[in-house]
Amino acid sequence: MVTVTVTTKFHNPSLSRRKEWQRATRLYRDTKQFCINGWENGDFGKSVTTASIDNDLYSAIQNQAIREAKSDHNKHGEVRYRESQPFAINNQNWELDTTENGT
């Protein structure tokens, strides 16, 4: 199986697309904070799942937020926030179609 890396850029996104991106970024941040707060308060264990999260982000993005929150929150209860992109796009739930000439 061949792995292909694709880089995408938004060129002059519309106002609605920018608002959608900003909203998703806030939801992503809130999801990470929800996880960290839950661990700090003892509301749930480290095995939190997307079923515990009530927002409309795709589950793959919620899972990414959970993974990042776990790495930001260590076993001793210390929280170290890392700078990162709001969320990363990975191969989950994405499909890339190519034409016969490779575009």
Rank of each mutant, 00 (worst) to 15 (best):
N90F: 03
T103D: 07
E40W: 04
A51Q: 12
I61K: 05
S16V: 09
A69M: 05
D43P: 00
A51K: 15
E68A: 12
T98E: 05
I53H: 06
N37H: 08
Q92T: 06
L57C: 08
A69T: 03
R82K: 14
S52G: 03
E68T: 10
L96S: 01
C35L: 07
T50V: 12
D43I: 04
L27G: 02
Y28G: 13
R17D: 09
R18D: 13
V4T: 04
I66P: 08
V2Q: 11
A65K: 08
F44Q: 02
I66T: 07
L96M: 12
F87R: 07
R26K: 15
E68S: 12
S16N: 10
C35R: 02
H73N: 11
N37E: 11
W21E: 14
T25K: 15
V48F: 02
T49C: 05
G45K: 01
N90T: 12
F10P: 00
V2I: 05
G38A: 06
E78A: 12
D56S: 13
D97F: 14
E95F: 08
E95T: 14
M1I: 00
D72A: 13
W39R: 06
S84Y: 08
K70S: 11
V4F: 10
Y28Q: 08
Y28A: 14
Q33P: 01
H11S: 12
T7H: 13
S84G: 06
I53A: 09
M1H: 09
Q62T: 12
A65N: 07
I36L: 09
E20K: 13
R18T: 13
N101S: 14
N91F: 00
S47I: 01
R80T: 14
K75C: 09
G42D: 03
Q92F: 00
S14R: 05
D56W: 04
K75T: 03
Q22P: 02
R18C: 15
G102F: 04
N63T: 05
N41G: 00
I89F: 13
N93H: 05
D97W: 13
Q62M: 13
G102D: 04
R80H: 11
W39F: 12
L57R: 04
G77E: 02
Q33M: 14
R29Q: 11
P13Q: 02
E83Y: 10
Q33D: 11
R29S: 08
T98F: 13
C35H: 02
Q62D: 07
P13S: 03
E95D: 06
T31E: 04
Q85F: 01
T99R: 13
E100H: 09
A51I: 07
G42T: 01
L27T: 10
D56Q: 10
D97H: 11
N55W: 05
D72K: 13
K46D: 01
T5C: 09
C35Y: 05
R29K: 15
M1N: 11
I66A: 06
D56R: 09
Q22S: 15
F34I: 04
Y58R: 12
C35G: 00
R17N: 07
W94C: 09
F10C: 06
V6A: 10
T98P: 00
N91W: 00
Q85I: 06
A24Y: 06
T49H: 02
Q64N: 12
E83K: 15
